[in-house]
Design a protein around this nucleic acid. Sequence first.
DNA 1: GTGAAAGCGCTAACAA
DNA 2: TTGTTAGCGCTTTCAC
Lengths: 337, 337
Amino acid sequence: MKKIGLKDIANHVGVSVALVSYVLNGQAEEKQVGKEIAEKIRKTAEELNYRPNQLAKSLKTNKSNTIGLVVADINYRFSSGITRAIESEAKRSNYTVIFGSSNESKEKFHELVNVLINHQVDGLILVPVENSEPSIKALQKSEIPFVLIDRNFPSILANTILLDNYKAAYDSTVHLIRHGHKRIAFVNYQSKLTNLLERTRGYTAALKEHGIDHHHEWSPLIRSGHVESDMKKAIHDLTAVQKCDAIFFATDRLSIAGLKEIMKQKIRIPEDLSVFSFDESEAFELFSCPVSHARQPLEKMGKIAVTTLLDLINKDKVINQIFLPTEFVPGKSCREP
Amino acid sequence: MKKIGLKDIANHVGVSVALVSYVLNGQAEEKQVGKEIAEKIRKTAEELNYRPNQLAKSLKTNKSNTIGLVVADINYRFSSGITRAIESEAKRSNYTVIFGSSNESKEKFHELVNVLINHQVDGLILVPVENSEPSIKALQKSEIPFVLIDRNFPSILANTILLDNYKAAYDSTVHLIRHGHKRIAFVNYQSKLTNLLERTRGYTAALKEHGIDHHHEWSPLIRSGHVESDMKKAIHDLTAVQKCDAIFFATDRLSIAGLKEIMKQKIRIPEDLSVFSFDESEAFELFSCPVSHARQPLEKMGKIAVTTLLDLINKDKVINQIFLPTEFVPGKSCREP
DNA sequence: GTGAAAGCGCTAACAA
DNA sequence: TTGTTAGCGCTTTCAC
């Protein structure tokens, strides 16, 4: 079946391509196209099953109606949630999403951004990875609109949609303090990502402001390549050696790894130990007790990322840093005060 | 910063655009471009930070190096796993993925397919939704290469990558029978999707071939909009009324909902009841005992989907239906024989 | 009201 | 070896 173009319709109806273009783009009124002709064009387009070539359109108008999205790993709950929100919001505005997963590699991240740019995306939504500052800085020079999401860099001023990680961690820690805990541990990844560092900062500040001495040993860092072994050691240290009575995990994956280890070591929640998680996980549904946690507003983040980006594309740019609050989801994993 | 095109480089170096095009597309040898000139062109392109306009290229060559992907819901473990595999395999072949999530709506599915086609994707990978046969049939007429994945329709003959759902369910049921179970329940969604129906068929056949009378009451159907309430009733019926001693859940989400309910009703696994799951879930990690299950080869499915599609795009090929086996992952959720 | 034609950035056949 | 040029399918200005 031959591809149908404007010309085919024009020939068929016996008019010029210009008219066909007007009509099919909803400019029939504006251009005062004859009613009958317009109707005939529409009908023929339908009959011939005309599909506009978006590439040609984009090439001409210099606008692809496409946004590029790079997430860290589509298998993360965070990524799939945000992707779903972004795709659906983009679609509402008639944009299509071109997609890539960097798998936390800065090389792949860089390459993906370039590929997306070559595909003439109108803008980018990026979850940057560690050490991707150079790519982002290069991007800034190119004047292509983009927004960062979830993560940022101190050295880069850009449109950013972030959680208020500091406050969320602070509040969560205070929650544990209110429950009467004094020896509160915080398990985080070893990482330079600001969102994670901010969580540590919030935790530390909460302890300090409530007159609790923070022991360095209470904040073990887990190496992402060695989660299982590091976590095993961490849980043992925190409970048996440091006698902590509460553990606050910095991410969902750490919570899962930690809770698994806690189960193995037959530590009872919340009798022996209180647990709080940053992020939620499907896995919590099958844990022996509901896990109290801070929930990320994925839907909202995705939606705001898109609207911010579209603003950037359509209007002129003001740099905007948006901090979203988490939602506190009470469970039964913290002992009663 | 003005956009740099081939012409700019040509002017800069003092040659024609053709030469620049040749060199930058690796045809320098073939076209016998002067070594020095070639080098100069490459250097200038680099300096000017030239980025090829993929749209123009595609328009001209009638090839976008882009594949469209429509999944049912990117939040499913299945979808994100398959998407990751597809994206990474596509990238290996220099293809980019344009993405959409149908959210199990046939209207959205149809629309997405059209949008992707308008974007001139070279081919499509689709996870069809219920009642999307008409869209698929229309697609077949258009001669755009596509492969279906995970789901198919009896009335449609197309390139398809499927699980061998029948065999996987059959084998899993036999596994339970071998463990000495006689009253084995199978909990599935109420759905017309063939992959789910095949699982029911496998289960039923296994019972029959092992001389076990199948009671209709042992196969409750859960309505996807009422999982919680339907599951509550189902679990109660199966255990208290039907006295089943094993339950086989047809999907990961059903397993989670079922296990949650089982926990609530204080039924012990595997002492009181054996449990087997089709699909795995992160959630199993925190269940009181490891759940035996059949694992889908997501990586492989994604990879094969891409290679099949690329074959279809590049050569012309016969219709191919590929059935992949699941992997049996033993847990401790089935009582010992 | 309608049509002719330029040109978006690129490829590739053809000419020189 | 290198350059010229005709489009790919579409939008849009300008002329009629």
